[in-house]
């Protein structure tokens, strides 16, 4: 039987998961030091565009991924939750850096001790601040997680 060579066969499940990992658009949620490293990851040398991720969306409605880059204060926490709620499903969260993962070295009245108190977190990226390479490793780990995980979120 003749089959043209530009047809691939796969399962719909796999296709959906694959399409989710490619061009996963992050919302700009730069808070502190880590935001600068996030911008460095997006710019020339490290080039997040390789993963189709260089478009940091200003509107949460157009974004799939929230990279919480920096320390989350008590005053910022409601805002962060609101931005997360406004994002369309399916959505993922990366807690970038020690402060957003656990509160880091600032164990005091002003900071939320880990952003997982407010929103569900998929990947924690360690470091203070994590270099662009660490952030990319976190993103690739998230891709693996999506490829291996459930399609229904």
């Amino acid at each position: 039987m003749y089959t043209p060579d530009n047809i691939l066969t796969t399962t719909i499940d796999k296709a959906v998961r694959w399409s989710r990992t490619q061009s996963m658009w992050p919302v700009t949620f730069g808070l502190a030091c880590c935001a600068i490293e996030m911008m460095a990851a997006g710019s020339a040398k490290y080039d997040l565009a390789r993963y189709g991720m260089e478009v940091f969306r200003a509107s949460p409605r157009q974004a799939d991924l929230m990279i919480v880059a920096g320390r989350v204060s008590q005053k910022m926490a409601p805002v962060l939750r609101q931005v997360y709620d406004q994002m369309a499903d399916p959505k993922w969260v990366i807690a970038m850096g020690a402060c957003s993962s656990t509160g880091g070295m600032f164990n005091n009245y002003a900071l939320v001790q880990g952003v997982d108190h407010i929103v569900p977190v998929d990947i924690y990226v360690p470091g203070c601040p994590p270099g662009p390479q660490s952030l990319m490793h976190g993103i690739l780990t998230l891709h693996d997680k999506i490829m291996d995980g459930e399609i229904n979120r």
Binding site: C33, R71, M105, F106
Partner: peptide, 28 residues
């Protein structure tokens, strides 16, 4: 105030040798 980290309070709990660890994170 959306990034208030309480560094001046934390600075009172760290000794002078640890102090730069705290202050370096102010103006990043």
């Amino acid at each position: 105030g959306y990034l208030h980290t309480g560094m001046e309070k934390t600075g009172e709990e760290l000794n002078y040798f640890q102090g730069p660890t705290n202050t370096t994170r102010m103006d990043y």
